[in-house]
Design a protein around this nucleic acid. Structure first.
Lengths: 189, 189
DNA sequence: ACCTGAACACCGTTCAAGT
DNA sequence: ACCTGAACACCGTTCAAGT
């Protein structure tokens, strides 16, 4: 006798994401997710392979949103302006959802990597800006330099690893300015 | 009736670090640590407040080693050469102990931040090199730009987040070269 | 077809009892 | 003073049984 579904994968991912946002990834327990979607924990295994699979889906959901945010941020004319907009938007996203951001670019033995298409989509506005700054030949390494700097900066900031005093905002602006100059200084190296 | 100690904090931290190195932070369980030092799990609580405290001690142990490694790497004359040596040594450390490295610069809600003195000591060779590249006024933001880039680059690399093909080593060299030029281009901005 | 309770093997942590 | 077994409250996950 068929029974109608009482929940959906979409609801489950949303519940998982809400739990991560509120209490960090440790708060995403199967029981907490189940309670939020009105079901018992074992039922989740009908839609999700295991907990790490659910965490991956939450990460991919966040990556989709981050990609859309960055896409919207880099549509002005000047590439140096776009670089600043991208970096600022990226940092704003991280500050708004630190627990979620902390999952996006770190390796975790237990969970598989997010879909590479999503990573590519999220990084495409950076790649376009990098190409306009550094030229087509250096677009990829230039984009990686920008992304690495932004990821590391925000991650250290959120981890409280900038402990030598000074103005963190100033260091952020300094980094943007220097990167724009450095990448635009021509294809020879 | 006093009983002689059957283990020590030093042994416990070493056991914890070995477990992290081998199987990631999830493999550091109180029971596994206890077994390695020849004791039962509850006894660990005589030396360590709780699991997160032990993880912090392992992180600090790794930071001490990383600091010493970097200190030894940056003693040549040319600051651009030192920058390259520091970045390469940093990356080598991360590749040699990816599970340990993954703990150093990420925030974790459950564990407290490592001792700030250790962070300062580990970053001091970077700060010195940054000062020689960018001048005393910009030493701190320049050091933060270098460190952010290096942390982000290695973390993305280890997370498998560089998925657009291309040569990752080339992107690393490109980043070093551009940073050296950018930071040395003078104090005005 | 989906959901559930019961069960299993694991955790971290506390604490009274042993030496 | 240190160590232990037993206990507690939690996990993730499986599975036979219900509808």
């Amino acid at each position: 006798m068929p029974t109608p579904s009482r929940t959906s994968l979409e609801q489950i991912v949303a519940a998982g994401r809400a739990l991560v946002t509120t209490g960090g990834v440790d708060a995403l327990t199967m029981q907490a997710v189940a309670q939020r979607v009105g079901v018992r924990a074992p039922s989740l295994y009908k839609r999700v392979r295991d907990r790490s699979d659910l965490v991956r889906l939450v990460v991919e959901d966040a990556l989709r949103e981050l990609g859309a945010t960055l896409d919207a941020a880099a549509d002005t004319g000047d590439p140096a302006t776009d670089l600043r907009a991208l970096a600022t938007e990226f940092r704003t996203f991280a500050h708004a959802q630190p627990n979620l951001f902390g999952l996006l670019f770190v390796s975790a033995a237990d969970r598989s990597a997010p879909d590479s298409d999503l990573l590519a989509r999220a990084s495409s506005p950076v790649l376009r800006t990098a190409e306009r700054l550094a030229g087509p030949d250096d677009a990829l390494p230039a984009a990686r330099t920008i992304t690495a700097w932004a990821v590391g900066f925000v991650q250290m900031e959120l981890a409280g690893a900038f402990q030598l005093g000074g103005d963190v905002q100033e260091a952020f602006d300094y980094g943007i300015g220097r990167l724009a100059v450095a990448l635009a200084s021509g294809p020879r190296r």
